[in-house]
Computed example of a mutant assay.
Amino acid sequence: MIALLLALGSSLAYGCADFLGGLGTRKAHVLRTVMIAAPASLTVGLLLWPFLGASFSPATLAWGAASGVASAAAFALLYRTLAIGPMNVLSPLTALVSAMLPVGVGLAQGERLGPAGLIGLPLALAAVVLVSAGGGAGTARPSRTVLLLAFGAGAAIALQLVFLHQAPADSGVGPLIVGRAVSSAVTLAAAGLMYRRLGPEKPAYGMSAAAGALDSVANLLFLLAARGGDLAVVAVITALYPAGTVLRGQLIGLGTAAVAVSLLALT
């Protein structure tokens, strides 16, 4: 039950971070926003180090670095996707992809669900779509490029979560620190190579930094949840994050999510 509560907290933090990041990207090039968000996320990890501890074994460094590369891609792709919309079409696709891959990895690694879980897991996947789908009547149909961006964002998020889960359980916040250091370095390097294409617009500094800080909190809560529960269950609950990015009352989706979480709590 504690793992599910942590996963729900992670979902809420991810949703708020993505909403702020999406808004920030509308004011400037996506890399300008990520250049602030990624180091802000690293700062949060460093501040948590004295309280939660960290170790840096070779496995921690490897999986943390892999999560950092995936995180940099997730930052850029997701914020760009949210900036160009339509959110009610793209958010369900991104969220569903980000849930399906970790679920598959968890089940492939031997995780087993009881009868309640076998009902709750597909119900939770349905809730991911319902809770993130807005009432987008009249919304323009997204282009193939935009759909690919959304799919790529979901895949990058999924890989980030899977890589974090593979890190040693006794590594504390080590994987998060390594991951954020790598994602910051990748982002700054990309920004340096593309400097002339970034444009003169300044990013929303406070909004971008808040997005990065919330993303770090979300990753921490996911890591703690995954260490205390099944990846398949934790990942699909975390994937409910679009509820924080779509400002509409998705009552059916939220109701479905509540039933799914209740069933998964029984596993």
Results as ranks from 00 to 15, higher is better:
Gly68Phe: 02
Gly68Ile: 12
Gly68Cys: 06
Val69Cys: 09
Ala70Arg: 00
Ala70Thr: 01
Ala70His: 00
Ser71Phe: 05
Ala72Gln: 09
Ala72Met: 11
Ala73Asn: 00
Ala74Arg: 09
Ala74Met: 13
Ala74Pro: 08
Phe75Asp: 01
Phe75Val: 00
Ala76Trp: 06
Tyr79Asp: 10
Tyr79Lys: 14
Arg80Leu: 07
Arg80Asn: 08
Arg80Lys: 13
Arg80Ala: 13
Thr81Phe: 07
Leu82Thr: 10
Leu82Lys: 02
Ala83Trp: 00
Ala83Val: 00
Ala83Met: 00
Ile84Ala: 07
Ile84Asn: 08
Gly85Asp: 14
Pro86Phe: 00
Pro86Asp: 10
Pro86Glu: 11
Pro86Ala: 12
Met87Glu: 03
Met87Thr: 09
Asn88Arg: 11
Asn88Asp: 10
Asn88Trp: 15
Val89Phe: 15
Leu90Met: 15
Ser91Asn: 05
Ser91Val: 15
Ser91Leu: 15
Pro92Thr: 07
Leu93Phe: 06
Leu93Asp: 12
Ala95Arg: 03
Leu96Asn: 02
Ser98Arg: 02
Ala99Gly: 09
Ala99Gln: 08
Met100Thr: 14
Pro102Ile: 05
Pro102Ala: 11
Val103Arg: 05
Val103Thr: 11
Val103Gln: 05
Gly104Met: 10
Gly104Gln: 14
Gly104Arg: 07
Val105Ile: 15
Gly106Tyr: 00
Gly106Glu: 02
Ala108Ser: 12
Ala108Lys: 06
Gly110Leu: 10
Gly110Phe: 11
Leu113Ile: 10
Leu113Lys: 02
Gly114Glu: 05
Pro115Asn: 06
Pro115Glu: 05
Pro115Gln: 04
Pro115Gly: 08
Ala116Lys: 04
Ala116Trp: 15
Ala116Thr: 11
Gly117Phe: 12
Leu118Gln: 11
Leu118Asp: 05
Ile119Arg: 03
Ile119Trp: 12
Gly120Glu: 02
Gly120Asp: 09
Leu121His: 09
Leu121Phe: 08
Pro122Leu: 02
Pro122Trp: 01
Leu123Asn: 11
Leu123Gln: 06
Ala124Gln: 10
Ala124Ser: 14
Ala126Arg: 03
Ala127Ser: 14
Val128Ala: 14
Val129Trp: 05
Val129Cys: 07
Val129Leu: 12
Leu130Ile: 06
Leu130Ser: 04
Val131Gln: 14
Val131Glu: 01
Ser132Asn: 11
Ala133Trp: 13
Gly134Thr: 05
Gly134His: 00
Gly135Glu: 13
Gly135Ile: 08
Gly136Gln: 01
Gly136Trp: 13
Gly136Ala: 14
Ala137Trp: 13
Ala137Gln: 12
Ala137Met: 10
Gly138Thr: 04
